[in-house]
């Protein structure tokens, strides 16, 4: 297994998760993201690359404006995942 020397991963490190089966690499998310978190993939048609995850503003634009439903999913960092309670059962869930 080849191990590369890379710096630590920032937090958030992966604000969006792409689905390569659905994403057509149109780069709408790259062009709409207000923080320029992504760069286009060097191979045309492939999913963008997350370059500046630590600059994400959690605005959701990448997901909201993607023309291919399911191609990208927002991925809340763990410390931002909220909780709720089912009133009937008292069971607690986390988003």
């Amino acid at each position: 297994m080849k191990v590369f020397a890379v710096p630590n991963i920032a937090t958030p490190g992966r604000p969006a998760v792409f689905n390569p089966e659905i994403c057509n690499g149109c780069n709408t998310c790259v062009d709409h993201c207000p923080s320029d978190v992504f760069i286009p993939n060097p191979v045309e048609g492939r999913c963008p690359i997350i370059l500046h995850p630590d600059e994400c503003w959690y605005c959701g634009t990448c997901v909201n404006d993607c023309p291919c439903p399911g191609a990208v999913q927002f991925n809340w960092p763990l410390q931002q995942r909220g909780y709720w309670k089912r009133r009937e059962t008292g069971r607690i869930f986390q988003a």
């Binding site: 959701g60 909201n64 909220g82 709720w84 089912r86 869930f93 986390q94």
Partner: peptide, 24 residues
């Protein structure tokens, strides 16, 4: 509410149902 849409969508996809669930 601005950046709220992705929050509502996330909760909804995770199974939150406002008619049954209380939000922390």
């Amino acid at each position: 509410e601005c950046t709220g849409k992705i929050i509502v969508d996330t909760y909804t996809e995770a199974g939150f149902d406002p008619s049954k669930d209380q939000l922390q």
